[in-house]
Each structure stands twice: as structure tokens, then as C-alpha cells.
Design a binder for these strands. Structure first.
Lengths: 231, 231
DNA sequence: GTGCTTGTGACACCGCTGTGACAGTCGCCA
DNA sequence: TGGCGACTGTCACAGCGGTGTCACAAGCAC
């Protein structure tokens, strides 16, 4: 938020000379400060020395590969990491996100695409730095314990608020009724009552534009519910 | 506060070497002056010697833990303290704020996020150190220790005044009855007495235009109370 | 003692919450 | 494509719990 004036400092880890120097040039021209490394080892060293704001990391590296670099960094730090992967290989994507990366880009990559991803990831990080998060017109303020829609207070009840807070701690992740029961109600067993559904319904009535066609709190059939991150 | 120049002077207390040196570097690059300590004892000593403008304090420390460091500092000083906590553990958060911290950040932490929080807390502090703040027609004068409404002295009792001051230290933030009890009364446990409510009621009677429909001191159902910042 | 402040407990009120029945919807399979 | 079964949405209602309010007595300073 206060950082909008400051130039982001990136670390680019990529062994292919042509791609590395090309991206370094392009990203510099897009207004970033860039450091570059040609191997995983050099990358980790540079990371510790220079503390970049974000890392762009090739997956296929000689020696320590990108996934491993990612995991090692994640042990102590949570700066954004964008993976560069050779093909749109879904397995790679999964492993990458599991190893703690924030986003991935498929090679060959256009500098302006990469730049757009970089800015998106940095923006996301800044939004999370405040205690509030926005889902379309709905804004959750964790410190004030209020939820607003188009700027107006939604007056959620305590249970509705807790439910929304728990969902928003894991945006995009489906939570079962059991899990929600534990997280929100601190019960263990739900009979066959409509407890969770009823609360979700009440929450939708306040939060959604069209409660009968929810776009925020989605039903995951056979599982439970999921809070969709903003588009 | 010994340092009144432009660059904020931070004290970082963190026992993990990797995180400490990493954050020290990153924060320095973000434009802060940073001193660092690896234990609670060292931290307290450095604090007395160097008088930083703000402290970033890990909770899990060998020997004196972060909460205790926080409490000891708070006995004599009001400088902003940001806690670093291992997980988004709600209990930790509550205890942290009760021990007198101004904010908390969950580890692993992104340097950018921490920087944003630091600037936010410092900004808040600047607003406060101007010794008066206005909430609509209600003006709190910290140096005179008076509260006026439409220019007339409200004659708050000592407890009412302390309650209002604690609320106004965190405008817009909901505070639980437990937290208020610790901050204002320095008790640990509230039975099921209406202590906080009664005091809030008396304060509202003096401060609000329509005490039965409060606009300044809002009830946050299931949580506690919150002082609304001026529109 | 006098006057003010503060903590306590009783009480009423209001709105939240959980329940269960029923209707509606979705997906699967023939 | 249509039907069936399972799953989900919806609703009304009664009980409950949190909050506002108040009176009173103890504490305290003068």
C-alpha cells in the first residue's frame, strides 16, 4: 500500500543464457529492478544476500531444481514465487503449487505477460497485508470485524461472521460440512441436520447479489461449500 | 522516542538466524534503520540502550518469550510493537493484543507485508501523537486529558476516560470484553459480570448524541466494542 | 460524614440459532 | 431423454443466550 512508489526488486533464476538475459532486459525496461542467477545454488545465495521482493524461477535447472529451490525458500520466507515451466504440463503445475509457488507461467514467455503476472502477484500480497480482503463488492475487515457490501455494513450475526471468516481463510478451497462444523461451531458431529446449510443460506441472503444464484459462496455438491476468490 | 528524523528506527527481536538476517536486510533496503537482537534479554537491553521507534518481536523466543518482552516494555513505554506469530492462531492473536502489542503478522512473513504493516502502525502513531483527535463533535485531548463535545467538557470519570482512550488507540478495531478488561482494568478474568457493558453504557450516556442508538462506540455482537473512526 | 465513582447482580428484551419437515435441484444411469 | 435417488435450499418456530439497563452498596477522596 505504502509501497506503490517503490520499485519492485526481482530475482530471476534461469539457466538458459538467452532467455535469462532477454527477460532481464525486458523486465528492467518494464520498470523493475532485476538480479539474475544461472543456477539453483547461485539463486539461493543471491536470495539470501539481496532479499528480493519476488522470485521468477525456472523449473528445469541443473543441480538443485526449481521445486527444491522453492521449498527451501519457503522454509523461512513467504515472498511471492513465480515458476517458469517448459510445457503446460499439468503435473508440473500441481507439484509447483504444492512446493509453495504463487503462480506459474509457461515458456516460451512474453515479457509483458510475465510482467502482468508479477504485478498481479505483488498486488495480491499487498491486499493481504492489510487485515481486509475484498471479494467483488464485499469487503471483509478482520480487525473491525465487519463485512461491507458496496460500502454498507452487512450486519452479520456472530455465527455468520465466523463462517465467512473461516471460508475466507481458505479462498478457493472447498470445505466439508464436517470441517465447517469444527471450525465454526466447534462441534464434532453433525447429525443429518441442516445446520450448516441454514447458516450458509442466511449468509448468502446478505452477501450475494442474487442469493438463489450465488457467485461468492459456491456449493460443492457432495462436499460442502467454497468461497470463490474474486475473478 | 529518541529519533525524530525521517528514517524510522526499528528493533527486530527474532532468534532464528535466517529469518532475522533476512528481515534485517530487507527492511534496511525498504528504507528503515534496523537493530537486531536474537533473544528476549538482548532485545530488552538493546531497547533500553537505543530507544527505537518501533519493535518487531517474535513470539517464540528462548528464555523470556515475546509476550513477556511486550509486557515489560509496556510498563514504561508506549512505542508501537508488532508481533511475529508462527501461525494464524487466534488464541495467540488475542493474547498478543492483550499483552499490549499494536499489531501482529503471521510467519513466514513477506518483507513487503511487514513493511506495509510497519508503515501503517507508524502512521497511526503519528496521528495519535498529535495530542487531540476528533470523532465528529467529540474531541479527545490527550495532553489535557479531557474530552469535549461541541466544545463543552464532558467530565468523564477516570475509568470512562481510560476506556475511551484505549478504544481510541485502535479506532475501527473491534476489542473483546477480555481485551478491554486487560487494557483498562488490568484484570485477567471477567466472570459473567456486566462490568465492561456498564462502563460502556455510562460512557455512551455522555458521549453519544442518542445513547440508545450509538454511532461512536459500536457494539460488535459476539465480540465486544469498537470506536468508529469519523466518517 | 458527604458526594462521587465503581463493581455487581437481577432482569427484560430482542434477535440469533438450531431443528425438522418439505420442496426443489442435480447428477447418474438406463 | 427421462426418471430416480440423493443431495441441497428454504422456511417457520421455539428456545436460548447475549446485551442493555438499572438500582444498590461498597469504596474512596475530601
Amino acid at each position: 500500500m505504502s509501497q506503490n512508489d517503490q520499485v519492485p526488486f526481482l530475482l530471476l533464476i534461469e539457466d538458459d543464457d538467452a532467455i535469462r538475459t532477454g527477460l532481464e532486459l525486458a523486465l528492467t525496461r518494464q520498470g523493475h529492478r532485476v538480479a539474475a542467477a544461472a543456477s539453483g545454488e547461485d539463486g539461493l545465495r543471491l536470495f539470501k544476500e539481496q532479499r528480493p521482493d519476488l522470485i521468477v524461477l525456472d523449473v528445469m535447472l541443473p543441480g538443485i531444481d526449481g521445486f527444491e529451490v522453492c521449498r527451501r525458500i519457503r522454509r523461512t520466507d513467504q515472498l511471492p514465487i513465480i515458476l517458469l515451466t517448459a510445457r503446460s504440463d499439468d503435473i508440473d503445475v500441481v507439484v509447483g503449487l504444492e512446493s509453495g509457488a504463487d503462480d506459474y507461467v509457461v515458456k516460451p514467455v512474453q515479457a509483458r505477460v510475465l510482467d502482468a503476472r508479477i504485478r498481479a502477484v505483488l498486488r495480491r500480497g499487498e491486499r493481504e497485508s492489510s487485515d481486509s480482503s475484498a471479494y467483488g463488492s464485499v469487503v471483509i475487515d478482520r480487525s473491525a470485524m465487519t463485512v461491507t457490501k458496496d460500502g454498507e455494513d452487512l450486519q452479520l450475526t456472530p455465527t455468520e461472521l465466523r463462517l465467512l471468516l473461516e471460508l475466507s481463510r481458505r479462498p478457493g478451497q472447498a470445505l466439508s460440512r464436517q470441517q465447517l462444523l469444527r471450525l465454526v461451531w466447534e462441534h464434532d458431529y453433525l447429525g443429518d441436520s441442516r445446520l450448516v446449510d441454514a447458516c450458509v443460506q442466511r449468509l448468502r441472503a446478505k452477501v450475494e447479489d442474487v442469493p438463489s444464484a450465488p457467485t461468492l459462496i459456491r456449493t460443492v455438491r457432495g462436499v460442502g461449500y467454497r468461497l470463490d476468490p474474486p475473478a
